[in-house]
Design a protein around this nucleic acid. Sequence first.
DNA 1: ACAAAGTCTATTAAATCCATAGACTATATT
DNA 2: AATATAGTCTATGGATTTAATAGACTTTGT
Lengths: 147, 147
Amino acid sequence: MLSKKAKYALKALEYIAKHNDEAPILIAEISENQNIPKKFLETILLELRRDGILESRKGKNGGYLLNKKPKDINIGHIIRLIDGPIALVPCVSYKFYHPCSECENEATCGLRYAMKQLREASNKILDRFSLAEIVRKETELKKSRKK
Amino acid sequence: MLSKKAKYALKALEYIAKHNDEAPILIAEISENQNIPKKFLETILLELRRDGILESRKGKNGGYLLNKKPKDINIGHIIRLIDGPIALVPCVSYKFYHPCSECENEATCGLRYAMKQLREASNKILDRFSLAEIVRKETELKKSRKK
DNA sequence: ACAAAGTCTATTAAATCCATAGACTATATT
DNA sequence: AATATAGTCTATGGATTTAATAGACTTTGT
């Protein structure tokens, strides 16, 4: 499961993406609208800024802005940034590769083979979803609901 | 990532599946061969037995046996049993469904839509892998290595 | 000068994970 | 019947991670 932190990060980014044409967005505003503890959110946004996803401005009229286009912000990337590997075992992770301590032979491990298939399928899906796509899908779902 | 417990469970089952024609298999034997702390393994095997995957015999000549055919033991099931949901958010989990506390409208949530696609892709892969398939793949990989 | 806003580091409380201890029960063998 | 073997069960402890908060600091617009 995603940690709350990761979910908060995604929700916050979605909120910012939706209001991105306008002025910088306040932490307090995101916190209230998305029901995220403000102090916790601060540290999350900081992390996203350090990664280059967000840009921030201090002082009056300050706040957060996207530093990339929504279509270039991939949700798999966000999840990995906050929660670490998506793969279920370290020995099949690209970004966080690390041999499994117990395994003798990685090349012939049947379980690893299965986990690799799973990772590949997961990545394929995650690659399809950028922030832009999430927002687009959401408005589409809302429209088809109203009818 | 899988917990150690889940990985131990899978490794232990794989070991038992490989030796299933013969007499019941000792906890101690699995522990030594797979490098799993014995006491920890006890509790894991107990859990698998309670779920009906394993059968046990007490006393002399006792030990553990599979209670199902390897082809009917699905690794997704094992992972869910030990670690809980595979889905990344509770609101798209079949087995552990639970609405996301923060979300207002599940039906129109863009993130949920993405997570649902991911869950479906994951399940599709996991359904392909039974214990039998894992063991088969492992021996196949070993053969092609020797050539 | 001052108020608004983000920055940074440290700390805490609760939960979860990994592992172990120890007393108990059932079974086979002699 | 006695004994050794092997699983059962409950409780507990330490380590790590997660979620959240505190508080002092910096930057910027007016």
